[in-house]
């Protein structure tokens, strides 16, 4: 599946999803975010059971604020609209998958 670019307008699609949701908070100028971004794309393509979303913190400061994002990249796993896992900093794909499987 492709990655869903989230804004505050379409955030409901992630919040109300029946799938486990991965949120990648990023900015274009952040090196570690650019390292994580292709890994998140791969996870989306290889795992249709997850809804994988990206949120640009510059464009969506309200969403970043609502998730108390103070560091990027921040990865959040959400189930039924609830945060079940959150981590900051770039990390290998295996660790991101492990966050989703927890």
């Amino acid at each position: 599946m492709s990655v869903l670019q989230l804004t505050k307008e379409n955030f409901g699609e992630a919040k109300n999803s029946e799938k486990t949701v991965l949120l990648d908070f990023y900015a274009d100028w952040c090196g570690p975010c650019r390292m994580v971004s292709p890994l998140v794309d791969e996870i989306a393509n290889e795992n249709p059971q997850y809804l994988v979303c990206k949120i640009n913190v510059d464009a969506e400061p309200e969403l970043a604020g609502a998730f108390e994002v103070m560091s990027i990249p921040t990865l959040v796993v959400m189930k039924n609209g609830q945060i079940v896992n959150k981590s900051t900093g770039a990390r290998p794909k295996t660790q991101i998958l492990a966050m989703l499987e927890d």
């Binding site: 900015a27 952040c30 090196g31 570690p32 975010c33 108390e68 994002v69 103070m70 560091s71 990027i72 921040t74 981590s87 900051t88 900093g89």
Partner: peptide, 16 residues
């Protein structure tokens, strides 16, 4: 506190 008060990448997190 890492990522929420304590940071190691000013370039990444300074803007917050």
């Amino acid at each position: 506190l890492t990522g929420n008060g304590v940071h190691y990448c000013a370039h990444c997190d300074g803007r917050f």
